[in-house]
Amino acid sequence: MLLPAFSYERPAELPGALALLQRLAAAGVSYRVHAGGTDLVPELKRDEAAIGTVVSISRLEALRGVRARPDGGLEVGALTRLSALAEEVRERFPVISDTALQIASPQIRNRATLGGNLLVDNRCVYFNQSPDHRDVHAGCFKAGGEVCHLVPSAKRGAQPLCRARFVSDLAPVLILHDAKVVLARAGAERELLLKDLYAPDGIQRTQVAPGELLTRVLIPASATRRVHYLKLRIRQALDFPSLGVAVSLDGKKLGVALTGVNTHPVVLAYEGALDATLKQACEDGPKRVAPLAQDFFSPAYRRQMIPVLIRRAVAVLSKKDTP
């Protein structure tokens, strides 16, 4: 598939990149940030919409790599490739490493980045199609059209407008680590809890403002927290999560973060005796998500699997508890 025409910038330094983004944002030029390209390039190939500029940040070496933080946590550059991430955090955060290795394929993990996975575009069976295919069903909101095929009653102005589903594997795991992201813009940066990065809409997916760039991910240390992630998919390679369940245990705290079953990661937090919190999480999980018929598995099945996977993840963590 041929890529459409676009202009391409590949700044060499972060300040230059931020200045460029600010300029493009101010001028109202539509742009897309290219990190590893594994999510962006297929989307561009399938998109007829005019793309102004692709801003490649792949030369910003400052955004690559993992550094220890004084508090014992880690600071990971957003441009760190998933294969490198898996290597470099294995000792400190094996669950992050394992999760990274469940994403896509080895070749994709050699290009795809941490930032790219956290900001991976929401997916929908009506959107991730060729322009020809979109002509068949009429373009949906996300494709610039005026309809949602999954929720036909949706109208512009509705919230959410688009139900394309969130599919990052790393987000739920990092959320349960209380990870923060650093969003930089020319001359300034802000920190945001990862769980607050996302917006409940398949088009306006994140809080990243025009001109901003996700540069780093901060993962605080915790002596007591343990996290496990289970990914539901029909094949053990290539596939996005049909459902991803991350579970954390930290003393009396139980955390659950779900991916693949809503427009954004769904986070649940409980405190109390594990029997009770677990029961509550298993009851709440299926109610808090909105899976739609846009995946290999039906919405009902994905809902049904939430408590199953929560219990299994807790079982794994509990087993690790008692050596």
């Binding site: 598939m1 890529l3 391409y8 290219h34 390209g37 594994t38 390039v41 297929p42 190939k45 399938r46 692709v54 490649s56 294969s83 394929s105 080895p106 070749q107 994709i108 050699n110 290009r111 290539l238």
Partner: peptide
């Protein structure tokens, strides 16, 4: 041509990547 089949793999600076997804 969209990064699913893997057939376009090359080694880029030593690492296997999908050349259909690399500008």
């Amino acid at each position: 041509d969209v990064g699913d089949c893997g057939c376009c793999t090359v080694l880029l600076d030593g690492a296997p990547v999908l050349s259909c997804l690399v500008l």
